[in-house]
């Protein structure tokens, strides 16, 4: 059963039958801008980018985004850039093999940026969800629509807890067209 998460909520990533999750997918989806009216062709496509930054203690050690689709260790894989939001379901996904994340990496923060700089007020039906990739089951979903005049969002954090991992919903608006511009804002959530 999927949980509709609210800001600040924490979720333990244990399987329902016990045991830890091994492979999770952070999916991001949004709808292409509707072409409306006479001058609809002037509407720009919305290009949202999902990224994630891997931290050891408080230090960023690797990032996965459209320009670096796989972490060097292979544990985090971006499925590729979607420039328009066309198509149903997840438009961009980041798959994390929790068993292979290097031992010094303790936190992974997921962000969404609007590459062309449009704000989340212009984005329709945007969501982020976390899926147990081993069986396709959605664990949590988090809706972005009705956003403010910001062009980035710090979505969620995966962090080590004991031998396993937990997820925490962050949902903080931020500004920055790529994740590098968000680094100062991320520091507050470590």
């Amino acid at each position: 059963m999927s949980v509709n998460m609210v800001k600040g909520q924490r979720l333990s990533l244990e399987k329902q039958g016990g045991g830890q999750l091994t492979l999770v997918r952070m999916g991001l989806g949004w709808d292409a801008v509707k072409k409306k009216g006479l001058f609809g062709s002037r509407e720009r496509d919305i290009d949202l980018d999902a990224s994630c930054v891997l931290f050891a203690d408080q230090q960023p050690v690797d990032a996965v985004y459209f320009g670096h689709l796989r972490s060097d260790d292979g544990s985090v894989q971006h499925t590729g850039d979607n420039l328009t939001g066309a198509g149903d379901g997840d438009d961009e996904s980041i798959i994390v093999d929790l068993t292979r994340v290097p031992v010094h990496v303790t936190q992974i923060i997921f962000t969404v940026n609007s590459f062309q700089g449009q704000t989340f007020q212009e984005v329709e039906n945007a969501f982020c969800r976390i899926v147990d990739e081993t069986n396709g089951q959605e664990l949590a979903r988090y809706t972005l629509s009705g956003g403010g005049p910001n062009n980035a969002q710090i979505m969620a954090k995966l962090y080590r807890h004991g031998d396993g991992w937990k997820m925490s919903a962050i949902g903080e608006p931020a500004n920055g067209r790529t994740f590098t511009e968000l680094m100062p804002a991320l520091a507050a959530h470590l």
Binding site: V61, D72, D73, G74, R100, P102, V103, H104
Partner: peptide, 10 residues
């Protein structure tokens, strides 16, 4: 290669 990258970065 990736397993070694993970080890070396740690």
């Amino acid at each position: 290669a990736r397993s070694a990258a993970s080890y070396r970065s740690s």
